[in-house]
Design a protein around this nucleic acid. Structure first.
Lengths: 212, 212, 212, 212
DNA sequence: CATGAATGAGTGTTCATTCAT
DNA sequence: TATGAATGAACACTCATTCAT
């Protein structure tokens, strides 16, 4: 939060626009001129403020990824919740975060598809490893406690968590159509899929993690 | 199959190369020069044979998507398998297909992220709807039969199926690292994640679909 | 000569124009757009044919420098000339070459001023060393022969030869004014300074090299 | 001298840095940002203090050229020296000046190559004409006196003086290599070439100007 | 039928300069 | 007086495509 205070209005306008356009059209598919025009700033400002188009992307990522890490770690340390409740909260948070910050998460999906090379891919890798180690602690806590089963493939469960949400996010048109919700307004539809995802994933995790 | 007979060696070389490069670097991230060079043909050939870079992409998609539809429909009609076995076979096929044709599926993931607009996105949408309706039949067969529970969110289960596989495919580096398999050769690693995905997803589907 | 046959009309137009503009305005002072416009070709052609602005410069240099080396070496081996006559011929050739290919030699002067770094500077250095070693043979031939004095600083004499010509070439306006030849047409003026340089340098070299 | 009192520390820092960078990388090859950064001042200062990058260059030139003119004129009027001694002193001064103020003289060389157009070229022309007329007086003094021969091409001799020094200055790398002095430190090497130039040029001038 | 040559639009970036403060 | 912010023009270069042959 304090970090984002560093950025002035123009910088924030660039960052917001860039996030949106990168998500929509990809990194190479978005020109700095596109960003500048939509953000209402001069083309040169992007290089001026962020050094390069690529640096802008990196800054965008770092800003967001730190928040996610913080969230996960805070959750782990929260006393007064059962381990299943913690997992449920984790699901809630992940779903909420993906749904409300779709643009950013689409960028992440995109960049992971792009064969390794990119600087961003490395950052994403680091982020995932950080989060995995936190979540491992959470699950093994529940196992010691007796709440959770012994043989749980945490890595695959996380793939299912993130993969399912990503799938729904990236195929929203499809979900609108198959649910006959083409006319529902955007905000309501977000709430709808968020709820659906929550129910589905909690059901899934309960079935896999617990003994009944 | 008959369709692909139309294409000569050069055209096939272009298509193979394009599939690989689009998967690796995205559509905008791949230039026709890159494709031409790696395929060992003249730059002008791409426009000449396929009309444009975009048309080439479309042709690539149509070729593959038809095969998937065929596979799913064949499976449904297969007698002599229990419904759970059919679901298991479906999982096997999906996993096998995604793992062995990563390049193509990465293109699909990418294109879905790209906000609607593209022609390809519409094709993908149609494909998914076709497959969904086949799978709905399969599941409801199992429900009438008594093998499967009543309340099953098929749409979400498919999101989990496809999402989980996509997630693992696009994050292979990550899975290598967290499984300490950095040194394993590529073919073996493919088998490894294929097996892991199969076990995980079957476990998941069994827990959700069946009564015990 | 056979080498230059490789280049087509457009390439030659680009090379000629580039040579002129680089000489007039320097490398950084000349834009590829300037070259393209004056050569009557599309901007993209420069990259297309020569890879980059820098490569174009290098090609320009290599073409010319080989000819100079050849000339010097041929001269050395020429039998039937006294050593002083060889030196005189060398002067004639250097003067003729500098005067008739002013554009190129201006580029060389420029590039030598530019602190080392450049690729061209290295090529120029190599060229000078090649020529020096040939000329050393020539002078020591005359010394053994008795035509020339013993103590001759060849390196400095070459600096005087090249430096004097360079100086006159780069300050033609000045020489026109101080000789009251402002109205003389360009071709005649070239002949005039060529003659002047020849007389002056031969006089100088004779005085320094020979005993009377 | 009084003139330079006008300039404050920042202005002087800019001027020094500009002189160095213009010499190293040429006028177009040096950006105001480069100058500002290396001089430790704000980018806007250059336009603010000097009007423009071009004006800065002009000011740089005027400052130095006045000193050279003064030097030459003072020398002419010096009584108590033979004419040959005066020529020797002139050589000493020219060499000393070129060697110790290489940056500035490299700028001059560069600008003379640049076809006329520039404002600076005109200033340089004026400077050379001023100096020539002074030196003509010196030589004709020696001729009347009987110290010097009658037929002397003063213009060409000046070309040799300036050209030889320029040549050595701009090709220092080359002279280091051919003299096997690659390891000598910079200050020592300056002294070395200064001495070499002095001996060579005095020898040359004596041979040409005097009767034995 | 196939292709080397060519093109104009577009890329990200840097430029010297101006301006509000 | 001094400067960080901002700008439009220009930079070298690459793009997908077209066209004459």
């Amino acid at each position: 939060m304090a970090v984002s205070m560093e950025y002035n209005d123009k910088q924030l306008a660039i960052m917001d626009t860039a996030e949106k356009l990168f998500a929509q059209n990809g990194f190479s598919g978005t020109s700095v001129r596109d960003i500048a025009q939509e953000a209402g700033v001069n083309v040169a400002m992007i290089s001026y403020y962020f050094g390069s188009k690529e640096k802008l992307m990196e800054i965008l990522f770092e800003q967001k990824s730190n928040k996610l890490t913080l969230m996960v770690e805070t959750l782990i340390q929260d006393e007064g919740l059962s381990y299943l409740q913690k997992v449920y909260t984790l699901i809630d948070d992940y779903v909420e975060r993906f749904v409300s910050q779709q643009a950013f998460h689409k960028i992440m999906i995109r960049e992971q598809v792009t064969e390794n090379g990119t600087v961003l891919a490395k950052h994403i890798l680091a982020l995932k490893k950080r989060n995995l180690s936190s979540i491992k602690k959470l699950i093994s806590g529940g196992q010691k406690n007796g709440e959770f089963k012994k043989n749980i493939d945490i890595v695959m469960m996380m793939a299912t968590l993130v993969g399912t949400i990503s799938q729904v996010i990236t195929s929203q048109c499809y979900y609108r159509e198959v649910s006959n919700l083409e006319t529902m307004d955007d905000a309501d539809f977000k709430k709808h899929i968020q709820k659906k995802l929550n129910i589905h994933l909690k059901h899934l995790f309960k079935a896999v993690l617990t003994n009944e």
